[in-house]
Simulated assay, not measured.
Amino acid sequence: MAGREGGDGVGEADGPTRRLSDLDEDELLAQVVPRFAAASGPTPLMLLGPGDDAAVLAAPGGSVVATTDTMVRGRDWRDDWSGPGDVGAKVVAQNLADVAAMGARPTGILVTLVADPGTEVAWVLAFTDAVARACADAGVAVLGGDLSSAGPGTLTVSVTALGDLEGRDPVRRSGARPGDVVAVAGTLGLSDAGWRLLREGRPEADPEAVAVHRRPRPPLTLGPAAAVAGATAMLDVSDGLLRDGGRIGRAGGVVLDLDPAPLAGDVARLAPALGEQDARRAVVEGGEEHSLLATFPTDTTLPEGFRTIGRVRPAGVDGPGVTVAGVHAHGGGWDHFRP
């Protein structure tokens, strides 16, 4: 089928397909837990890993950042677009990006799987392998998790991610001040472009965009770097540049005024596959990119990997939020409860 991810999927079995209903919980865990351990191994902060009622993780900085995010089949992914490897990589990426956006270093995750007993065991193991690899690449420990069954067709995965502030204060959404520069680290619009191309049945028009939609690439190390550099506000672009920029603006009672000029390259990158208008919408409205959007004092030397895309202004008659070239902008982006 056009658009189906080629690797880390569920291949054809030589014998009868094994399903979760063919195993008990202990038998499944006996296959899952060693995969996590083999990929990531022990990390310096994991004092006690899976096997007891809870894991133990050191917090050298004295403060722990915690976040959680969930993906539901049919709502957050489609099986004909994304294989289990994609789902595993994405659910880790989006959670670790939230930790990095607070200025923290990700240290560990907990994984939950809620599945129809008819789910293939091979899907679960491919998902497990992808989670393990993503954590190993980020230097993050898999601390444990939970399993539960659900009704026919249900498949939900959830990750809780933890991070260490390393003695720093968290970078919140509410700290932007007039005169600050607005900067972004990472790509803009690629994930949304990939989603559009999959929906249109044209994934071959931009394979990189499709790959980023399936497996986002958040710049995790730049979250702590931004904090060290003095970032005044930060979040990850999960729901679109306008929607997330508006959140920073409203939290701080200011306006994030975006400059179209630095975004022109992002639009030009996507225009051959999408056309100019949809490329522009993808850049300013597209979600699931998980790049980092931050504000910095005007005299700050931005960490390498960040680029300036605007300026923080005082709120005007339209109130706090986001503008593009001085024009108030709103809407677009992802909303879980709207079609």
Rank of each mutant, 00 (worst) to 15 (best):
E204G: 08
R247C: 06
P170I: 00
A185G: 05
P178R: 05
L241N: 02
R202A: 13
P216Q: 04
A211E: 14
G245P: 07
P178S: 04
D244W: 08
A183Y: 10
V184E: 14
R196D: 14
T221N: 05
D244C: 05
R196Q: 14
G167H: 15
D236W: 06
L190G: 10
V212C: 11
P218M: 01
D206M: 11
P170L: 00
A193W: 03
L241F: 01
V237N: 13
R173K: 15
G245A: 06
R173H: 14
P216I: 03
G240Q: 04
D239I: 00
R199Y: 05
T232G: 02
T187P: 09
V212M: 04
P178E: 10
G175L: 02
D192A: 10
R247T: 07
L220T: 11
R168T: 13
R199C: 09
A211W: 10
S238W: 04
V181C: 12
G240C: 02
V171W: 12
E200A: 08
E200W: 06
L242G: 06
V184K: 02
A211N: 11
R214A: 09
D206Q: 07
D236E: 12
A233R: 00
L198H: 08
S174M: 01
D164M: 12
G194A: 09
D192V: 01
T187Q: 13
R250T: 12
L241W: 11
G167I: 14
P178N: 12
R177S: 15
G163T: 13
G230V: 03
L222D: 06
D180S: 09
R217G: 00
G194V: 04
A183K: 05
L165H: 15
L198Q: 06
L162Y: 15
R196A: 14
V182D: 12
A227P: 07
P203V: 04
R177Q: 15
D244K: 02
A231I: 01
D180A: 03
D169Y: 09
P178G: 01
H213M: 07
L220Y: 10
L188N: 12
V210K: 14
V181D: 12
G189Q: 15
L235T: 08
V210F: 08
V237D: 10
G252M: 03
H213R: 11
L235W: 00
L162E: 15
A176W: 11
R247M: 08
G189V: 12
R214T: 10
L188P: 01
R243W: 07
P207A: 09
R247H: 07
G223R: 01
A176Y: 04
R215L: 01
D192M: 05
R196H: 14
S238D: 05
R177V: 14
P178D: 00
G167D: 15
E208V: 11
I248F: 04
I248R: 02
R214S: 06
G252K: 00
V228R: 08
A227S: 07
R177I: 09
A209E: 13
P218V: 03
A231S: 02
L222E: 04
P216A: 01
R217S: 06
P170M: 00
V228N: 02
V171M: 13
G189N: 15
